[in-house]
Write a protein that binds this DNA or RNA. Structure first.
Length: 440
RNA sequence: CGGGGCGUAGCGCAGUCUGGUAGCGCAUCUGGUUUGGGACCAGAGGGUCGCGUGUUCAAAUCACGCCGCCCCGACCA
C-alpha cells in the first residue's frame, strides 16, 4: 500500500478525551474514530489489526475443535424470556422495538440463541461433544464507557459454547478452551495469566479470567510470579489429556480481586508474590445446565434417557485486545506492534520522493517485498524526512526500511527494528533477504 | 444513576466573570526557499461560538430548558 493512496488520518495533537495511552495512540495513529460514547468506527489501519487478531483467534479455536458459525446481532426477546434473563439483565441490555412493536434486543451475549439452535437440531449423545463459536459484534449499554475500545459499549467478541452429555465431558471441553486461550494470547504477543474468577451474572461454578498485566488495567489481580512467564503448550493434542497443562497453572495461586484469598496469597514466597493491575481479555465459564434446563435442551443418553446438556461458554474480547496489546507494547513515540498483528509488517520510507535513484530503489523494493508476500506500507509522499520518521514510529510497524540519497551513495539502505531501535545498513538485496526470511 | 467538568475552525486552546458583531498555535490550500528526526518566509481559505427559548438596541458572553462528551464512584469481554 502506498501512503499517497491510503487513508490514514493522523492526529498530531492528542484529543482531550483520551486518558490512557492505548486510546491516545489509537486516535493519533488513525486506528479508530469515536462515533458516539463507547462506539467506534474502525479506520483502515485499525481494521487491519482487528482482522489479524480475529484470524488468530479463529485459527486457535478451529485447532481446538470448535466450529464457526455466525449468529445475528439482533435477537428476539422471546428466547430471553425463556431463560429468565430478559428481566434479569437490566439496563445493560439495549432493547429495541420493531415496526410491529415486537421486542428485540441487541445481543450482549448469545447463550439463549445458541441453545435454541442446538436444541432444535441435536437429539443424541452421539452427536456430542460440540463446541460452536462465532465472532460477532455485541452491545452492552455500559453506564460509563471509557478507555476507548477497552471499555466500549459496542465491541467485537469471540464467544464459544460447548455442549456435553455429562459434567466430565464438559470439564474436558473447558480444558480445551483453556489451552486454546493460552496459545491464542501468546500468538498475539501477550503474556496472559489465567486466574480464578467470579462468574458474574452468567453463573456457574468454574471460571477463569485471562488477564494481561498492565498498569492501566481495570482489575486488581494477585498471582504467583512464575505464572507470568510460564511457557505456552506447543504441539497440543486437543483430543488427548490436557489436565497436566491445566494443573501446572491452577496449582499456583492466581485470582482476581473478587476471588482473592489473602491467606493463600501470603503463603506464596514473598519474592514470588505479584499484586498488579490487569486487563481481562478472555473469560471462560462452565455453567452446567443453567440454560439447558429452563430452555429444555436435551439429548438422549446411552441408555435412552433424556439428559439436559452440560454447557460452558468462552469469550475473548477481540476489539478490546487491540487496546490491550498497545497497553502492553508501546514507547513514548508510539505503538510497537507484535509482528503477528501489525497492520503492515514493513514501512518503506522514501526520504526523497523526487530523487530518481531513491525512487527507483524504493519502487523495486516495494515490488519485490509485495511479490514475496510481505505487507508493506510505502511512504512515497513528499513529506519531510522527520515527519515520516515520527509517523512510522507512531503507527508502530515492526520494521522500517529507510531509503535516501545519503545511504544510496554507499549502495545501502537502513533497516530499523521498531521494538529494539536497532539499525542496520544493508544493500537493498540484503534488506530484502532479511525481511523475506521466514515469510511464506 | 450520584458527584465534578467541558462543548468556540479538522486538532489543541484563549475570549465568557465585566454583553458591543470572534482570535492564537498546529493542520489545510497557493507561491517561493528548503529537504536524513515533526522546516522557513509570504499570502489565502475555513466558524449557524452544541441546540432551543428568553432578557437586551445588541448575546460566544446573562437566564431557563435540552442534547452531546469527558473525569471520579457502584457494574462488565
Amino acid at each position: 500500500m502506498r501512503v499517497s493512496r491510503f487513508f490514514m488520518p493522523l492526529l498530531r495533537e492528542t484529543p482531550a478525551e483520551a486518558q490512557i495511552v492505548s486510546h491516545r495512540f489509537m486516535l493519533r495513529a488513525g486506528l479508530v474514530r469515536q462515533a458516539s460514547a463507547g462506539i467506534y468506527s474502525w479506520l483502515p489501519l485499525g481494521h487491519r489489526v482487528l482482522r489479524k487478531i480475529e484470524q488468530i483467534v479463529r485459527e486457535e479455536q478451529d485447532r481446538a475443535g470448535a466450529i464457526e458459525l455466525l449468529m445475528p446481532t439482533l435477537q428476539s426477546a422471546e428466547l430471553w424470556r425463556e431463560s429468565g434473563r430478559y428481566e434479569a439483565y437490566g439496563k445493560e441490555m439495549l432493547r429495541i422495538k420493531d415496526r410491529h412493536d415486537r421486542d428485540l434486543l441487541y445481543g450482549p451475549t448469545n447463550e439463549e440463541l445458541i441453545t435454541e439452535i442446538f436444541r432444535s437440531s441435536v437429539r443424541s449423545y452421539k452427536d456430542l461433544p460440540r463446541n460452536l463459536y462465532h465472532i460477532q459484534w455485541k452491545f452492552r449499554d455500559e453506564i460509563r464507557p471509557r478507555f476507548g475500545v477497552m471499555r466500549g459499549r459496542e465491541f467485537l467478541m469471540k464467544d464459544a459454547y460447548s455442549f456435553d452429555v455429562d459434567a466430565d465431558g464438559a470439564r474436558k471441553s473447558y480444558n480445551r478452551m483453556f489451552v486454546a486461550y493460552l496459545r491464542t494470547f501468546a500468538r498475539l504477543g501477550l503474556k496472559a495469566v489465567p486466574m480464578k474468577a467470579d462468574t458474574g451474572p452468567i453463573g456457574g461454578d468454574l471460571s477463569h479470567e485471562f488477564i494481561v498485566l498492565a498498569d492501566t488495567g481495570e482489575s486488581q489481580v494477585y498471582c504467583h510470579r512464575d505464572l507470568v512467564d510460564m511457557p505456552v503448550p506447543e504441539n497440543v493434542d486437543f483430543q488427548g489429556d490436557l489436565t497436566p497443562y491445566i494443573n501446572q497453572r491452577t496449582s499456583l495461586y492466581a485470582a482476581t480481586e473478587e476471588k482473592h484469598d489473602a491467606d493463600a496469597f501470603a503463603a506464596i514466597p514473598e519474592d514470588k508474590r505479584l499484586a498488579a493491575r490487569g486487563i481481562e481479555v478472555g473469560h471462560i465459564f462452565y455453567f452446567g445446565t443453567k440454560y439447558s434446563k429452563p430452555m429444555n435442551a436435551k439429548v438422549a443418553g446411552p441408555k435412552g434417557e433424556d439428559v439436559h446438556v452440560e454447557m460452558g461458554s468462552y469469550g475473548i474480547g477481540v476489539s478490546r485486545l487491540v487496546g490491550a496489546i498497545i497497553e502492553a507494547s508501546h514507547d513514548e513515540n508510539g505503538i510497537i506492534w507484535p509482528e503477528s498483528v501489525a497492520p503492515f509488517r514493513v514501512g518503506l520510507i522514501s526520504l526523497k520522493a523526487d530523487d530518481p535513484k531513491t525512487r527507483e530503489v524504493c519502487e523495486d523494493l516495494y515490488a519485490k517485498l509485495g511479490a514475496a508476500g510481505v505487507d508493506v506500507l510505502y511512504d512515497d509522499t513528499e513529506e519531510r524526512a522527520g515527519a515520516k520518521f515520527s509517523t512510522f514510529d507512531l503507527i508502530g510497524l515492526p520494521w522500517q526500511v529507510i531509503v535516501g540519497p545519503r545511504g544510496l551513495a554507499n549502495g545501502q539502505v537502513e533497516v530499523k527494528n521498531r521494538r529494539t531501535g536497532e539499525r542496520q545498513n544493508l544493500t537493498p538485496e540484503a534488506a530484502l533477504n532479511l525481511l523475506t526470511r521466514g515469510n511464506g
